[in-house]
Computed example of a mutant assay.
Amino acid sequence: MTDQPRHVPVMLDRILELFAPALSDHPAVLVDATLGLGGHADALLSAHPSLTLVGLDRDPNALAMSAERLARHGDRVHLVHTVYDGLPEALSSLGLSRVDGVLFDLGVSSMQLDVPERGFAYARDSPLDMRMDPTTGPTAADVLNTYEPGELVRILREYGEERFAPRIVKAIVAERAKEPFTTSARLVELLYAAVPAASRRTGGHPAKRTFQALRIEVNAELDVLRRAIPAALGALRVGGRIVVESYQSLEDRIVKKAIGELAKSTTPPGLPVELPEHAPYFRLLTRGGAELADEAETEHNPRAQSVRLRAAERIREAT
């Protein structure tokens, strides 16, 4: 399979650089917890001939495409159909307890955005689906048509950070009473009418925040992430590294908090020296907190414009 320009892995060189000390010169295991089309995985396997990769993805279509792409690496690749909070069970099924690296490339994949039938993109009319695993669970249409108004307002506010959530939900409730929502064009038209013109001029596409909120709700993305990051940190051996790419502030806050809590000393105030049991478990590897893609990459790869990359290394074993 060929890799189209829109599928270029984000911040690939930096990710290779961050993982190199943990994966070089010895048989190592890395989990790509959001395998997607396998771009990062392929590069890591090529850079480290002794690396074994465990690739996780909830999307069976992505797994099938990655299997084709990564086939040349033979039995060094193990693919598992699971959401990324299923990491502990996936490792257990392979007889693994600790790994040398874990990579998360969060959010919706380029492949999912590019297939109209998946319903992730608001630029064209398509079924309101938005499931990352299209074989299970409620769709975005189910959320729009069945949730109570108060719950819809909460979702738009919390997951989309949408200031006009009450106005939008009022319009949704009125429209669904006439006819259930099935496709995106009708919802986009409603959002253009509900979001004030002044906000449309300065706040980007009026559908962006609502579509993000629906996608997060349909896939339980934030709840899954809150479980997945601690599980990944717990699976790393000393010297192992985690790298996370986030594309919106809600994800990045969860990642920052989970890593940050384990990267600080727990020495009680007033204690003159740090005892070993109070030392941090991790050290931060990214400069100034989260790193951004450089201008050259964002011009070449639009998906990199919103990325926030964080990385850390385990420096002592859990007690």
Rank of each mutant, 00 (worst) to 15 (best):
E291K: 01
I229G: 00
R118E: 08
R308S: 12
M130W: 02
M111H: 13
A121F: 01
P276M: 02
D85W: 04
L37K: 10
A279V: 10
L45Y: 09
L79E: 08
T2S: 12
H48Q: 10
L292E: 15
G38E: 00
T319V: 15
P21F: 07
G107K: 01
K257D: 15
L96F: 10
R186L: 08
A22M: 01
V238L: 04
A41C: 05
A318T: 07
E313Q: 14
G289Q: 04
A232M: 03
P60M: 05
P60K: 03
L191Y: 07
F164W: 13
A33F: 11
V83S: 13
L96Y: 12
V244M: 07
S249R: 12
E148P: 15
D59S: 07
D142N: 13
F181S: 11
D294S: 09
E162C: 01
L191Q: 06
A47L: 10
L271A: 13
T210M: 09
G260N: 07
L56S: 04
H73V: 00
S66L: 04
L187D: 01
S249C: 10
N219D: 00
T2L: 11
R154E: 11
V143W: 11
A193P: 02
G204M: 07
H300D: 12
P88Q: 09
N61T: 14
M132D: 05
A263W: 13
R69S: 11
D32G: 04
E261M: 15
L262P: 12
L53A: 02
A177D: 15
G119E: 00
Q4S: 12
P116L: 05
L79W: 10
T298Q: 12
V153D: 12
D42V: 06
V31L: 10
T182M: 12
M65G: 09
T266P: 08
L106P: 06
S246A: 13
K257W: 11
G101N: 00
R200G: 08
A33M: 11
V243N: 03
T286G: 05
F120L: 04
P116N: 03
D3I: 14
I168F: 08
K178A: 11
H205A: 04
A71G: 03
T146D: 14
L285I: 05
G101Q: 00
G203A: 06
L16Q: 13
G240T: 00
V238S: 08
D142W: 15
P196R: 06
A121S: 13
E117A: 10
V8K: 14
A235C: 05
P21Y: 07
S66C: 03
E158A: 14
I259K: 03
F164H: 12
A193V: 09
E317A: 14
M1N: 07
L18I: 11
R303N: 01
A312Y: 02
G289T: 06
L12Q: 09
K170W: 05
L94N: 07
G95H: 12
P230F: 02
H278K: 01
E151S: 15
A123M: 09
T136S: 15
M130R: 01
V102Q: 01
E299W: 14
G101E: 02
T82M: 05
